[in-house]
Amino acid sequence: MAPGPRSIVCIKQVPKAQELQVDPVTNTLKRVGVPSEINPPDRNALEMALQVKDQFGGEVFVLTMGPPVFTSALEEALAMGCDRAFLLTDRILGGSDTVPTAHSLSETIHKIGGYQLIFCGEETTDASTGHVGPGIAGHLDCAQITYCSEVQFLGNRVRGKRSVEDGFETWECPLPCVITANFLSNRPRPPSLSGKIRVKRGGLITTWSCADVGIDPGKVGIRNSPTIVAKVDTVVLPDRKAKIFRGEPKAAVTALLDAMAADGVLSR
């Protein structure tokens, strides 16, 4: 049997969406102090890659581009079972939109080398574009299968079940290939005790700057991002003044229906 593939999983650390609150005074999103997590679909990407490794051997590398605090996402991915991790971090990368992000990640993947599969999440919960995965494929000029809910490694090709609006397509592509994993497509494994021990022992994370990778500073960062966020309007939802009912089900339902009827919600 051919040796298993080298997979590189791109992950991002994002603020927990549920914890984001609008500051009532400034009317902007409060981002400081908000706990962060691995972008949820990226966990599915990690699990997908690890399942390929469980089945065929090979190795799984994890890559992130971001500030040094993203190390904690890498550590968690390592504890889940990834073999090595790469952090691309550089001040000049700040403010990159999807074009420089896909470019920088592609260059880093190129430097790592020897890859057959690249995994991304379907999209991030903070940028929610889903453009970085296909963007990497565009840069590397390799195949792509987006919105994958299952992959099968076929030695010299990869097969992916792709979830589209009206059904599932099965795509088959040569290697290397970028796969973006559908959110909820599998149950990501929790970090394991042995995994955390390996992380604690250290030496698994490689940190690179743009210069280390050979990324052209004229291609990245906020100044080289085609798009800018000109302004952000906070969506202020009407305060619905919830009437909450609880207690014994029968009485609670009666109270709820009475209230709805009284407000004219039940009449057609």
């Binding site: 929610s128 889903g130 296909p134």
Partner: peptide
């Protein structure tokens, strides 16, 4: 912003290096 629309736009914007706003 269908699955194919995003798949295509994402690849294309990196090839021709221009901005793409999603959704």
């Amino acid at each position: 912003a269908s699955k194919n629309g995003r798949d295509l736009g994402g690849r294309l914007h990196a090839m021709i290096e221009t901005g793409l706003a999603a959704d």
